[in-house]
C-alpha cells in the first residue's frame, strides 16, 4: 500500500453540496447546501429521519447518483481534490479503494450467487495488480480483523449461508479491504439485533482508530452516534440544521428539531417519564415551502421563520441553521 503523505486539512470537506432529482412530479431537493468536514481517524455521525437526504449525501460523495438525480452545485474535496472534477474512470479508481461504503441491509448488499471469496478478491484486484493467492490472503486477514471466526471456511461460503450480522461483518471487511482513507457507513446496523449492533459499532470504531480511516456514520438513531461519533451533523429536509461535537450537541442542543430528536430517545427521558414526539411528518421535498422547512412542526416558531434561516455559529465549534435557537438546558 502506498504511503503518500496526507495533505494538511481534513480528509473530506463537503462545501455547499446540492443534489436534486428531476422527476416528473417536480424537482426533489434531496440534498441542499450541505457542508461538513471529516478528518483522518475521526467519526462523523450524520443523523436524520428517513427522507432527510443523509443517504443521498453519501452516494453523492461516491459519485453514485443515478438519473434523474444530479449534483447541481457545491464541492466535494477529498484530500484537497474536488471529486466533482474527476472523470468516471478516476472515480471508479477511488471507489472501493480510497473511499469505501457500507450499506444498510446486509441481506441485500452481497451478491447472492457469488461466493464470499469471489466478492472480496475482485475488490482487491479491481484496484491493485496482485495475484489471486495474495488477494485471497488479504481477504482472509480482513475477515479475521472484523472478528469473523474460521475465515477460511466463510470465504468458501455463499452469502445465504451466513447470518445477517456475519454478512454485515463481511461487508465491513470488504470496505476495509483496501485500507481506504474514508468509509461511508449508511445505517449499517439498523437491520441487526441490538447486541450484534453494539459489537459491530465497536469493531468499526476500533478499526478506524487503528488505521486512521475517516468514518461517516449515517443513521436515524441518535443513540448509536452518541456512542460512536466524535462529531454530529443533524440533517432535516435535505439540509444540515446543526453540527458540533457529540457531547455538546447532545447535552446542549440548539435547534428545536435536535431537541425533539433527543426527547424521543428513551434513555434521555428517564425511567417512567413520557417520551416526547415531534408532531407531523417530514415534508415532501418537492416544492418545499419558502422559509424554514421545520417551521410547521416547530415548538418555538417565530415570525422570522418565514424566511429560510442561514447558518450561524453561536458558540465555537457549533453551527446551527435556526432563527430561534434554544439555549436553555434540556429538561431532565
Amino acid at each position: 500500500m502506498t504511503t503518500d503523505a496526507l495533505p494538511a486539512g481534513p480528509t473530506l470537506a463537503v462545501e455547499g453540496l446540492a443534489t436534486h432529482f428531476f422527476t416528473k412530479a417536480g424537482v426533489v431537493k434531496a440534498v441542499d447546501d450541505v457542508s461538513f468536514t471529516v478528518s483522518s481517524g475521526e467519526v462523523l455521525g450524520i443523523v436524520g429521519e428517513s427522507g432527510s437526504g443523509k443517504s443521498i449525501t453519501g452516494f453523492s460523495i461516491l459519485g453514485l447518483i443515478d438519473q434523474p438525480g444530479r449534483i447541481v452545485s457545491g464541492a466535494i474535496r477529498f484530500k484537497g481534490r474536488d471529486l466533482r472534477g474527476l472523470s468516471e474512470n478516476e472515480m471508479q479508481g477511488l471507489r472501493g479503494d480510497r473511499i469505501a461504503m457500507i450499506f444498510q441491509d446486509p441481506m441485500m448488499t452481497l451478491n447472492p450467487v457469488l461466493r464470499i471469496d469471489t466478492q472480496m478478491i475482485e475488490t482487491v484486484q479491481a484496484h491493485r495488480s496482485v495475484g489471486r493467492a495474495e488477494a485471497l490472503e488479504l481477504s482472509r486477514q480482513a475477515l479475521d480483523q472484523v472478528g469473523i471466526p474460521a475465515p477460511e471456511r466463510r470465504l468458501k461460503a455463499y452469502p445465504h449461508e451466513l447470518s445477517g450480522g456475519m454478512r454485515q461483518r463481511v461487508a465491513i471487511a470488504i470496505a476495509f479491504l483496501n485500507k481506504p482513507d474514508l468509509i461511508i457507513a449508511d445505517e449499517p446496523t439498523t437491520a441487526l439485533d441490538v447486541t450484534i449492533q453494539a459489537q459491530i459499532l465497536f469493531e468499526a470504531q476500533k478499526l478506524c482508530r487503528a488505521t486512521g480511516t475517516a468514518l461517516i456514520w449515517i443513521t436515524h438513531d441518535l443513540a448509536v452516534v452518541a456512542a460512536l461519533a466524535d462529531r454530529i451533523a443533524v440533517m432535516y429536509a435535505g439540509r444540515i440544521v446543526e453540527t458540533g461535537t457529540t457531547d455538546d450537541v447532545i447535552d446542549r442542543p440548539l435547534h428545536p428539531y435536535t431537541r425533539g430528536l433527543i426527547g424521543s430517545v428513551p434513555s434521555h427521558a428517564g425511567r417512567g417519564g413520557r417520551l416526547t414526539q415531534i408532531p407531523g411528518m417530514t415534508p415532501s421535498l418537492i416544492d418545499l415551502p419558502a422559509g424554514c422547512a421545520f417551521r410547521d412542526r416547530c415548538t418555538v416558531p417565530i415570525e422570522a421563520c418565514g424566511v429560510a434561516p442561514g447558518v450561524t455559529s453561536p458558540r465555537a465549534g457549533r453551527h446551527v441553521r435556526c432563527h430561534n435557537p434554544q439555549f436553555a438546558d434540556v429538561a431532565p
Partner: peptide, 19 residues
C-alpha cells in the same frame, strides 16, 4: 443493493454487468 455495492467497490462496468 448488491449492484450498487459492486459499484461502490469500484468494479469496472464490464465486471458488474458481465459477472
Amino acid at each position: 443493493d448488491y449492484i450498487k455495492f459492486a459499484r461502490a467497490k469500484g468494479l469496472s462496468r464490464s465486471r458488474i454487468v458481465g459477472v
